[in-house]
């Protein structure tokens, strides 16, 4: 658990030092006026792809010899990915924060972001209640 905490610490420091938690950077990204956010996400994805390819070809395992716990998304649920993604994107542009930065921004001392965190919890609750009526 200490290692997990330290990895979280590193991630929080990274997104703050890289200005990813700044509302201004997200706004700028959606105006396509800077390479910064595309460089951040693009290089993370490229290097991540190299990691996954290496892990697959070399048979890397997680601790204890288990297989890596890679996300497996169900392609049949593509409607929920597109529609849910669109709803999230609107919230991302307005608050300037995706779920990670919501909490990092709070740690950085911008206390009004608590209201957005409460909103995110309410949104999650609402999804849990109405999800049977939504396309998936």
């Amino acid at each position: 658990m200490l290692r997990i905490f330290l990895l979280g610490l590193l991630f929080g420091i990274t997104l703050t030092m890289g200005e990813v938690i700044s509302w201004f950077r997200i706004y700028e990204m959606f105006r396509f006026e800077s390479f910064h956010m595309y460089g951040v996400i693009g290089s993370a994805v490229m290097l991540g792809a190299a990691f996954h390819l290496l892990a697959r070809s070399r048979g890397w395992k997680a601790e204890g010899g288990r297989a890596l716990d890679v996300f497996r998304y169900d392609g049949k649920l593509w409607k929920s990915y597109l529609l849910g993604g669109t709803v999230f994107g609107m919230g991302w542009a307005v608050t300037g924060a995706c779920p990670g930065p919501l909490f990092i921004t709070l740690g950085a001392g911008y206390l009004p972001v608590i209201v957005a965190i409460i909103g995110a919890l309410l949104g999650t609750l609402l999804y849990g209640i109405v999800r049977r009526h939504l396309p998936h």
Partner: peptide
């Protein structure tokens, strides 16, 4: 902030992931 946050929570759960789960983990795999 409240409504924007609500969209973040509702949307990421509907999409089963956010920037970390989809943009980074999902795209890189």
């Amino acid at each position: 902030l409240l409504v924007g946050g609500l969209f973040v929570g509702f949307g990421t759960r509907w999409a089963n992931g956010c920037t970390s789960g989809h943009a980074i983990s999902g795209l890189s795999s």
